[in-house]
């Protein structure tokens, strides 16, 4: 809301040097198990000081396993290749995927401590279709040249079940969002049965490929992403709630989350 004041009365901001309390770094564990092959992973990094510069330190010396509710244990191995972006990731053997309705437990043994989280894979209904259209208003004055195509999502939301969704949107294989701190989550409390063309929150250029991933997530995961979103968006203003760390599903505090979610994917090439 401070933003509204900013808009009206051109408030200004200047950099300020904080003197934060120095805290020990703690591990940040995030994991994903989905019903799609090649998408599951665990990543372990560490928290850093607020003014830290450079690449975030990662850990590859942990013992990582995922156990399903029939007792099948899958070991996740640290990535050892040459892509620096992938360091800190632990990957399952090829062919690993989860199943909707089954429970998975992640166990991470790190520095003699065990971090455990478990979750049941929520279902997701398929995306009916994607459609494209030109946003006429945007086409008169696009923020970036030729980016005025909208992608609209159509789906059915099961009325009788309680569902939560996380959306990820890709433009030409790159994950994108409208604003730096956006997370796209929905509670079906506010959704009608027919999702009748909800627009992807950013625009495309003719010829782009748009991909929409719709994850069916648990209530707990919804709470986590919602907390994270609020924490990221907190402007520290007088109207804002006091900032807090997100609530996670690990038994020992780490700011990450073990997400077990089924995913529905659809894509479209932008054209008339």
């Amino acid at each position: 809301m401070a933003l509204i004041l900013v808009v009206i009365f051109t408030a200004c901001d200047i950099p300020i040097e904080l003197d934060p309390e120095q805290t020990e770094s703690i591990p940040v564990i995030e994991g994903l198990v989905t019903n799609t092959e090649g998408k599951s992973y665990v990543r372990i990094t560490e928290t850093v000081g607020f003014y830290f510069e450079g690449n975030i330190p990662y850990r590859d010396d942990a013992l990582v396993s995922v156990t399903d509710d029939s007792g099948n244990v899958t070991l996740f191995q640290p990535y050892t290749g040459s892509m620096t972006d992938s360091l800190g990731y632990f990957l399952p053997p090829d062919g690993f995927k989860g199943e909707t309705g089954r429970n998975y437990t992640l166990q991470v043994l790190l520095d003699g401590e065990t971090f455990t989280a478990s979750e049941t894979m929520a279902p997701v209904s398929p995306i009916d279709s994607l459609a494209t259209s030109i946003d006429v208003a945007e086409s008169f004055d696009p923020e970036e040249e030729d980016r005025f195509w909208e992608v609209l999502l159509y789906a059915r939301e099961p009325e009788l079940t309680k569902d939560f969704y996380l959306f990820k949107f890709y433009r030409n294989d790159t994950l994108e969002r409208a604003f730096e701190n956006d997370i796209y989550i929905v509670d079906d409390l506010f959704l009608a049965v027919n999702i009748n063309g909800i627009p992807v929150p950013f625009y495309f250029v003719e010829g782009d490929t748009a991909v929409v991933e719709m994850y069916g997530i648990s209530n707990k995961a919804f709470v986590y992403f919602s907390d994270l979103q609020i924490a990221l968006a907190n402007d520290g203003g007088l109207f804002s709630p006091p900032p807090a760390n997100p609530r996670t599903n690990f038994d020992r505090y780490t700011p990450g989350y073990f997400l077990v979610a089924s995913v529905a994917t659809d894509s479209i090439i932008i054209q008339e």
């Binding site: 904080l18 934060p20 309390e21 120095q22 805290t23 770094s25 940040v28 995030e30 990094t45 560490e46 928290t47 850093v48 000081g49 607020f50 830290f52 975030i56 994950l175 701190n181 997370i183 994270l228 990221l232 006091p242 900032p243 700011p255 990450g256």
Partner: peptide, 13 residues
């Protein structure tokens, strides 16, 4: 309340 540190999550938040 100011941050005591930061971390990277979900790719690049």
């Amino acid at each position: 309340t100011i941050p005591a540190g930061r971390y990277e999550i979900e790719g690049n938040y």
